[in-house]
Design a protein around this nucleic acid. Structure first.
Length: 691
DNA sequence: GTTAGGG
DNA sequence: CCCTAAC
């Protein structure tokens, strides 16, 4: 049944998320690279899909004892009537189970798709691939009284965790570099699979529903292990060298919940005998690197990513090619955008807000960890072991002709995903955010790093044999990691030190500025209404102001939320940039700011006086202080006003414009059109006369 | 940098 | 609102 639920990860079904359009400053470039960007997106999706699908398969193939429970859970889950979903339609919890990399192409069973609430279906692109799950209704409110409160969980990552590893990482909090090479490392790690889950939600209240721990089958979602998405550069993959080992497949634990403490140790891993993991950790800066943030309302949820690198087993011949391909695809894609001044400001705002919320975020963090413990659930899916083995075989074709190396990559974990989203954001936006984050990560361009006994193998020209990656040999110590591409450095360069890290937080922020809340602007609009044209709205543009306002004030305007979410997400291009990608900066589309009646009035008045065709003057005259209104905007607005005036009132949308104004629009339009016509005629006449 | 238009 | 072509 579980399997049945899965969808093919074939890329066909995917919808490509809208691509953010650039800011004005970047227009030209954008246009040029638009196609490329799109392609990149596709690539990202494909990659994601592929990875996820594979991972999933792997998971399934895992025969563990946990299987039973898993199956059961799934079953229960399925049995749960969709109708159970609450009217709310939004699922408080979203879990990314995993992105699985599977070995056998034929059999790929794509990601498991969990039923998603209808409400969010539109956003389901993601869901289908990543198995984002949202369930809120399914939870008993009784059991989880707070659940509704917006408990939201995002399982960022799930991977085998070496308790040791984790601990050190957390404790140090800084560079989590694992000593590779250390003898015991692999061993300790071996067989353990941990999952991390971060739950966001109800943070506000400080109540963290313990969804994971609940025994309710419905919880299932939370449990299934999966690959995680983390912003971090590397992906961990437990490795199984031998299919057989699957039996012992590790269990996955979900750890990290909001409201908990910072200790991950809890995660107990499952053992996976033949798996070996290597890890590379990234420095503290990681956080700064990839983030996705959404700033909207006053609240933010943060999921602090943890970085883990996992590496695992199996080399796959196939994979490399794939990645390379992708890489090329993505290369151009994400770039850091140079944000125009404005954007920068926005950004600053966001940073400010961030700082304000630090405490809260921390709290979240902590709580999340706590939860982890409880959460620990094993949900490895099983698959026919035979299948997996076959997959492994395939992979083996890699290098040695005589003896093939068999490797299987259980999963790739994507580390560190940082998400900041207002509580008022919709589930759909959350999904999108996560998806985009994932996409950004994957799309940024990844390369595969190979670790052997904790050591990175940088020489791509060595044969497996030469390297020692041969059968039976050191497979246990073989690890793979998905690493972000560095802009200028070749993949092989220090993976340990992902470029991302380099950028300081501020830079990072800059990179991913989020749109200021429109709400703020709205608010300002409201109070500005009475002002004369010049003062109509002081520019809301300047993000800082609005943002601050929004922060301080509760987001009174619901619109704010609406406007921002999607966009900000897009802004996220968190990914590492390549030179090329840099060029194709994706700018974020300006937030929509409907003209208020007072603005329309000012516009009409100015146009009546100046006429059409002098937009710059109109701007100066009536909107000089509204920096977010460019003359192009005014021109466009006039265009729409004329159109609006011509259509029937029933066909009009948005805030109704007084008929009186529309009449004036038509009158002015007619007048100036006439003038324009005369202008054109005159010359001709003169010409004739002259001639 | 502005305009004018199409998208 | 965005993107371009033309000025």
């Amino acid at each position: 049944m579980v399997l049945q639920k899965r969808l093919d990860y074939g890329f066909n079904g995917f919808q490509v998320p809208s691509i953010p359009k650039g800011s004005r400053s970047a227009r030209g470039r954008r246009a040029v690279h638009k196609k490329e960007v799109e392609n990149n997106h596709m690539c990202a999706f494909e990659l994601l899909a592929t990875v996820a699908g594979k991972l999933l398969q792997e998971r399934e193939s895992t025969p563990v004892s946990s299987n039973v429970s898993t199956a059961k859970l799934l079953q229960d889950r399925e049995s749960t009537p969709a109708s159970s979903n609450v009217s709310a339609g939004r699922a408080p919890t979203i879990i990314i189970k995993d992105i699985v990399k599977r070995e056998q192409p034929d059999e790929q069973k794509p990601l498991k798709v969990e039923p998603c609430d209808q409400g969010s279906c539109d956003e389901s692109v993601f869901a289908s691939k990543l198995s984002l799950q949202a369930h809120n209704e399914s939870f008993n409110s009784t059991e989880f009284p707070h659940f509704r409160k917006e408990a939201c969980s995002v399982q960022l990552s799930r991977l085998p965790e070496d308790s040791v590893f984790v601990k050190s990482r957390k404790k140090l909090g800084i560079s989590n570099k694992v000593k590779r090479g250390s003898p015991g490392y692999a061993e300790s790690y071996k067989g353990k699979v941990g999952a991390e889950e971060q739950k966001l939600g109800s943070m506000l209240d400080g109540n963290v529903p313990d969804m994971c721990s609940s025994e309710d089958p419905t919880d299932l979602d939370t449990k299934p292990p999966a690959a995680l998405v983390s912003s971090d550069s590397s992906v961990k993959v437990p490795l199984c060298k031998d299919p057989i080992s699957h039996d012992t497949f590790p269990r996955y634990h979900d750890d990290v919940k909001l409201g908990t403490k910072d200790d991950d140790e809890n995660s107990s891993g499952c053992t996976q005998p033949s798996t070996v993991t290597l890890k590379t950790f990234r420095a503290p800066s990681r956080i700064g690197d990839r983030r996705i943030r959404k700033l909207l309302a006053s609240r933010y949820w943060r999921v602090a990513p943890k970085l883990k690198d996992g590496e695992l087993s199996n080399s796959d011949g196939e994979m490399k090619p794939v990645f390379r391909k992708r890489k090329s695809c993505y290369t151009r894609q994400r770039s850091q955008r140079n944000f125009p001044f404005k954007k920068r400001r926005l950004y600053e705002q966001s940073s400010v807000s961030t700082s304000n919320r630090v405490s809260s975020s921390e709290g979240i963090f902590n709580s999340s960890k706590k939860v982890m413990k409880e959460n620990v659930i094993d949900v490895p899916l099983n698959r026919a072991s035979g299948e997996s083995s076959s997959a492994a075989v395939q992979e083996s074709s890699i290098e040695s002709r005589d003896s093939h190396v068999k490797l299987s990559i259980k999963s790739f974990k994507i580390p560190e995903l940082f998400i900041e989203i207002p509580e008022s954001a919709t589930v759909g936006s959350l999904k999108r955010t996560v998806m985009e984050a994932v996409t950004a990560i994957l799309g940024g361009g990844l390369h595969v790093g190979v670790l052997l006994q904790g050591k990175k193998i940088r020489d791509d020209n060595k044969t497996l044999l030469q390297t020692g990656i041969s059968q039976g040999n050191k497979l246990d110590g073989l690890g793979f990691a998905l690493e972000p591409n560095v802009v200028n450095s070749p993949p092989s360069l220090c993976p340990e030190d992902p470029p991302f890290l380099l950028p300081c937080d501020s830079q990072t922020l800059t990179r991913y500025p989020i749109t200021p809340t429109s709400g703020a602007s709205d608010a300002s609009l409201n109070h500005a209404t009475n002002n004369l044209s010049n003062y109509m709205e002081s520019d809301h543009d300047s993000v800082p102001t609005p943002t601050d306002m929004s922060v301080d004030k509760t987001p009174s305007d619901s619109r704010a939320l609406v406007a921002v979410p999607a966009m900000s997400v897009e802004a996220l291009a968190v990914v590492p940039l390549n030179r090329k990608s840099r060029r194709s900066e994706l700018a974020q589309r300006r937030i929509r700011r409907p003209f208020s009646v007072s603005e329309v009035e000012a516009l009409v008045q100015a146009v009546e006086k100046l006429g059409t065709g002098r937009w710059r003057d109109v701007k100066l005259r009536a909107f000089d202080n509204a920096k977010h209104r460019t003359y192009v905007d005014l021109k466009d607005k006039w265009k729409t006003l004329v159109h609006t005036a011509r259509i029937s009132p029933q066909q009009r949308r948005g805030e109704p414009v007084p008929q009186e104004l529309l009449d004036r629009v038509l009158a002015a339009h007619a007048y100036w059109s006439q003038q324009q016509a005369k202008q054109q005629v005159k010359p001709q006449t003169e010409m004739c006369l002259l001639t």
